[in-house]
Design a protein around this nucleic acid. Structure first.
Length: 580
DNA sequence: GCCGTTTTCGGCCCGACTGTTTTCAGTCG
């Protein structure tokens, strides 16, 4: 038996939380399971090791009870408590809980009274008008449930990619900022934390009068339906992506504490409330109060952290994965990489392979973003489907690169390649040829379905090849589309550290590969990284934003990111790092 | 179920909104 991996365990804990809700258990007990799931998925530590060494309880939020359950699950592959609970209810109830406006109480009522045990049965019962007969339900809730079912089926429960959502959010923010009287506007929630996927969007604004701001959202172009509108809140669903957007408007003096509250994460916020309590401070979305009820002024979030005697924690780090302890001790890095630090964009394609824009167009677009260089890294000859280049094609491309560089002073295209890592770990060109290039990214594009041993060996072998500078999108995942291929990332990162291979943090919204946890592991090993766009057209150059966000979430500092160096030093450092 | 310099019991966030109510329950964030 292969022991269940961390994701499976996390999922079981989340399911248990749902089942306990159905059972009508104490809400705090329910929350404890969710907290434990958060904690487990957030820790960079290996689950099997934690279990083996009996150190599960080192994670705050996991006590004796949960440690025993997790241990049982990991060591035996089954958890009796979970199996028993699951058997009490039809499996369809869990899916019903996912519907908007349908919670545990309603699900249980539907099951007990109508024997409705799945989303499909619920839809039928609504259409037959049986739901409105139940106490606490009416015609409106019946209609609302039907709407919710339709939405649920469209969205299939998928969270949206940050990259798909952010442009819509930016548009809305611009619109809200323009409303007369508005003082401050900000996204909150997972968008502000730059999580890789987003459920729905939280926006916050401060203004003396909420009405006009709420109205501005309700009447924004792209709004499909206004879900609700009160005196201080408004919820809408956008046409694009079925995205739900919630806006709250409040007086400016409450903005910072509300922003902090709604930015989360929940786990981070709960910890801070606890710290506040120790200092006799009650922290809520409405402000910071002393025990005697005095309200303390909190002009911005930095002031909030100062009140707690700790460093300011940027939103991207607020996951309760060690940032609170570090900030209390003053050890939180203050030079996390930012967009301003990045001088060149790595990993770009042009019309020479499968890109949409010419070298010159890509160069000018990057220059206009304030960047100093761009690495031209087309596909190599094996990637025929992507217009992969032969050695002779590349030599001709170098002539064009020289011409563009001459025509565009103050900017440099660097001569590179995204070379395929073949099945054995061999590269798609000779070592001799690769050495003539300034930047060599090695990536896997074919044969994804190898087992973990084979895939790990393949990557390790590739890193032994002297011509390789950068390991590209190391796990090959595509969010919602393709699982990462199985690979022992610790071994790969150890090898990168040993061999001086730089690792890519690919910024394409569906990739984000390395992902946050792996970035953190890389940084801990001293592995150098590049932030990249994986751009196939000019517009994709902005993917750098998502790469930088992922790097920040993984605690990467400016010094960890190689393309914060000017072009010459970027290239010379790439080469100098390599050990033979 | 977790946690503890108020430590093994008792607290753990609670307000806004909606719909079904006629004073409140359920859901959400």
């Amino acid at each position: 038996m292969t022991p269940p991996d961390k994701n499976t365990v996390v999922q079981v804990l989340r399911n248990l939380s749902l089942l306990l809700q159905l059972k009508g258990e104490n809400a705090f007990k329910v929350r404890a399971y969710d907290t434990a799931a958060d904690r487990l998925s957030g820790t960079p530590q290996d689950l099997a090791t934690l279990v083996q060494e009996g150190r599960l309880q080192d994670l705050p939020g996991i006590g004796q009870g949960l440690a025993e359950k997790i241990t049982e699950l990991v060591t035996t592959g089954k958890l009796g408590f979970y199996e028993e609970l699951k058997a009490e209810y039809p499996p369809g109830l869990m899916e019903m809980l996912q519907l908007p406006d349908v919670g545990p109480k309603k699900v249980i009522a539907l099951w007990n009274e109508l024997k409705v045990g799945s989303v499909a049965e619920l839809e039928l019962a609504c259409r037959q008008g049986r739901v409105r007969e139940l106490k606490g339900f009416g015609a409106k809730s019946e209609a609302k449930i039907l709407e919710g079912i339709a939405l649920h089926q469209r969205a299939q429960g998928k969270r949206k990619l940050l990259g798909d959502v952010l442009p819509t959010v930016e548009d809305l923010l611009t619109r809200l900022k323009a409303v007369p009287g508005v003082v401050r506007v900000s996204p909150a929630g997972s968008v502000r934390r730059r999580a890789e996927t987003v459920g729905d969007v939280d926006l916050l604004a401060s203004a003396p009068q909420a009405g006009p701001v709420l109205e501005a959202l309700a009447t924004s172009p792209g709004v499909a339906v206004v879900l609700g509108k009160g005196e201080s809140k408004c919820s809408v669903r956008m046409v694009q992506e079925d995205l739900q957007v919630d806006l709250r408007v409040l007086p400016d003096e409450d903005f910072a504490t509300a922003l902090h509250h709604f930015t989360g994460s929940k786990a981070h916020h709960v910890r801070l409330r606890g710290l506040g309590q120790e200092k006799g401070l009650k922290i809520s979305e409405w402000g910071v109060h002393r025990a005697d009820g005095t309200k303390l002024p909190v002009p911005d979030e930095a002031a909030l952290y100062r009140l707690l005697g700790m460093q300011y924690i940027p939103p991207e780090l607020r996951e309760d994965s060690g940032e609170i302890e570090a900030a209390l001790e003053g050890h939180l890095p203050e030079d996390l990489v930012s967009m301003e630090d990045v001088l060149g964009v790595v990993h770009c394609h042009s019309t020479w392979s499968d890109g949409k824009h010419s070298l010159e167009e890509m160069a000018r677009a990057a220059h206009a973003m304030g960047l100093q260089y761009l690495t031209v890294t087309e596909h190599s000859q094996t990637s025929v489907y992507a217009g992969g280049l032969k050695e002779d094609d590349l030599k001709r491309q170098w002539e064009e690169i020289d011409r563009v560089n001459e025509a565009l002073p103050g900017f440099r295209l660097l001569k590179g390649i995204e070379v395929d890592i073949l099945e054995t770990g061999a590269l798609d060109y000779s070592d001799h040829f690769l050495e003539r290039l300034e930047v060599v990214i090695g990536s896997i594009h074919i044969r994804h379905s190898m087992n973990e041993d084979q895939m790990t060996r393949r990557l390790l072998n590739a890193m032994d090849r002297p011509g390789l500078n950068i390991l590209g999108h190391p796990t090959g995942r595509l969010i919602h589309e393709r699982e990462p291929y199985p690979v022992r990332m610790e071994e790969v990162l150890d090898k990168a550290a040993e061999r001086g291979v730089v690792v890519e943090v690919n910024g394409k919204p569906a990739r984000l590969d390395l992902k946050t946890e792996h970035v953190r592991q890389a940084v801990q090993r001293g592995v150098k990284l590049v932030v990249s766009a994986d751009a196939h057209k000019k517009e994709d150059l902005h993917h750098l934003l998502f790469s930088v966000a992922t790097a920040r979430r993984g605690w990467a500092r400016k010094g960890d990111i190689l393309n914060t160096l000017p072009a010459d030093r970027f290239v010379s450092t790439l080469k100098a790092l390599r050990t033979t």
